[in-house]
Design a protein around this nucleic acid. Structure first.
Lengths: 351, 351
DNA sequence: GTGAAAGCGCTAACAA
DNA sequence: TTGTTAGCGCTTTCAC
């Protein structure tokens, strides 16, 4: 029993040959017309004919086949350390919008903070011939970054950088952001401020910690800090507990990011200390829902979307011209004051 | 000035030809060895030799070139309506893990709830020859779904379904979930319960609303409901305000998802009504941070990750065998009681 | 300005 | 069991 192919076949895609036949030209002419760069080489009359036929047949060039020839895939890889941290979806939007504007597609991979997965992911992406990579996963002396180098793959870091390494990056002014938080706490009257730092292997962890120390030492104050093992709530709680155990009189804590700040909330709750009445807390990033936490989190807002867009644009520029000078773009953060900070409780003198 | 190529060239990738030459066999033999399916056709001795050479040269087959020949890209497209909704990153993890296990790569696109972007994204994915698609964006009578059909592209829906359409889907038992919430509120003593429904164009909106009505009507109670325009906080606030204006005596509100529940928080706050003291609120999804809101949200937890994994597996099965029967998997949700629900305030009688 | 021919890196028929 | 040949859909020389 013969079925009507038209009814059953799931719409075979037209090839360049089909268009060429219909337009009575050679395939190469069709190719020239459809490629903006070579479009001028063909006579306007033929170009018009080819174009309308292509549109009518619903022909779109196969980017994979084209890529095989041109060695350009029009894709870039994006490595994200932790999708559950809402800061990354926000950055991603910016990345996608910049890439899309350039005709590129992002292939996004979540590494779950696992260096092995990151490396594996990069290899998969490289096998797919991505033309560049955006790393939100960078650690100081990152093996993945080294691998990109070895592969000759253009890279841009986002949010985190690798100081000293010649690589483009779009980051926040971490020290300035922390200074904002410290300044706010000082203005409120706090004189015993501690820091729950980020992991030392990540630039943001180091830079924010250094910024914290600088801001306090400038005023001749101590700057106690304990680093968290990871940028997550549980690690924040552990670090905060340790910090408070060693410095019981702290009236304020600057956390290196919002997840760590939530961990501080937990540590305080476990000690039965109220935030902000007994201890003020600040975060960093202003993640989605930071205004919903109990208490609403005072934090340093970074321009997530712009950061992503800049990173995307930087990468496209570097793909365009691999010799382009590497640049590090530093974005200015802003303080958002909410309910997790308040003046320190005035000491009750013993009666 | 001649530079040493080895130092400057960014490591030219070896091709199958290089391996073939080194192993003194024909390229097709190398191909056979490296392809698990045809591996058995080659003598063990040669296979061993080829394999070790391939490894030593660092050769990995180019999946793009292979795909051109085999018409298989080992990629699938994933359409997400809103990355800022933390439920989707959680589902994504499941999807990625299932796809990765099958050797597939996900190409994820955020559509920002925009049907035009969704369509465009699908076309880009189709052009890239994805072998299938996972849609978390489905609306009832979804044009994107129709387009997948036209392209003969295997599809699996996740979270949302399109009832009546023959398509595989992994969803929650929405009615059962809502019944859980309603049951909890009834048990607390609530007798005037309203519903901030999801958009009517989305299956979850309809199913949850129907579940709500069924649960209350079974007990002979009214089931007032107002649909939100979108699944976001602002729309939730508007719908809730409308609901409360029309039904001022409600003591509890079942929101169709957690974002809408947050909108209800806002609507209550604007009226100066305390949650849960004056009005209890429930959500749906148990998104990340639901336990951190003020008050912590009582909500219906869905198995995000499992949902994603099942969807990924289903799609792989369908790619493997396009004739495979379509199936709809329904997952059982669970109630998580937190601080946004409490017994209704006992009426104060006028003195 | 257009056509012809070669080939990107791989795999699948077919031969030997 | 291995080698040969052709070609996936496209772009890019090179001729004309």
């Amino acid at each position: 029993m013969l079925a009507s192919p038209a009814a059953e076949m799931p719409h075979k895609r037209p090839t360049i040959q089909d268009v060429a036949r219909a337009a009575r030209v050679h395939p190469s002419t069709v190719s020239r017309v459809l490629n903006p760069r070579t479009r001028g080489l063909v006579s306007p009359a033929v170009a018009k004919r080819v174009e309308s036929l292509a549109r009518r047949l619903g022909y779109t060039p196969d980017p994979v086949a084209a890529g095989l020839r041109t060695r350009r895939s029009a894709t870039v890889g994006v490595l994200i350390p932790d999708m559950a941290n809402p800061v990354f979806p926000l950055i991603l939007r910016g990345i996608e919008s910049a890439l899309m504007a350039g005709g590129y597609t992002a292939i996004i991979t979540n590494t779950d903070n696992d260096p092995a997965r990151a490396r594996e992911a990069l290899d998969r992406l490289a096998a797919r011939r991505v033309e560049g990579a955006i790393l939100a996963t960078a650690t100081l002396r990152d093996p993945v970054l080294a691998r990109c180098r070895a592969l000759g793959l253009p890279v841009v870091l986002v949010n985190r950088s690798v100081p000293g390494d010649k690589v483009s990056a779009v980051v926040n002014d971490d020290a300035a952001g922390i200074a904002l938080a410290v300044g706010h706490l000082l203005a409120l009257g706090h004189r015993a401020i501690g820091h729950v730092a980020g992991p030392g292997r990540i630039s943001t962890g180091q830079a924010r910690r250094a910024g914290f120390a600088a801001a306090l030492r400038a005023r001749g104050m101590a700057a106690p800090a304990v680093p968290a093992a990871n940028y997550d709530i549980a690690a924040g709680e552990r670090a905060c507990s340790e910090l408070l155990a060693a410095n019981p009189r702290l009236t304020a804590i600057v956390a290196a990011n919002d997840l760590l700040a939530l961990g501080c909330y937990d540590a305080l709750a476990r000690r039965g200390a109220a935030c902000p009445r007994e201890v003020s807390i600040t975060g960093f990033n202003d993640i989605t829902f930071a205004d919903r936490f109990a208490p609403p989190l005072t934090t340093v807002r970074i321009p997530h979307r712009v950061m992503g867009e800049q990173a995307g644009r930087l990468l496209l520029a570097e793909i365009e011209d691999p010799q382009a000078p590497k640049q590090e773009i530093k974005l200015e953060p802003v303080l958002v004051v909410r309910g997790s900070t308040a003046p320190p409780r005035t000491k009750r003198r013993k009666p």
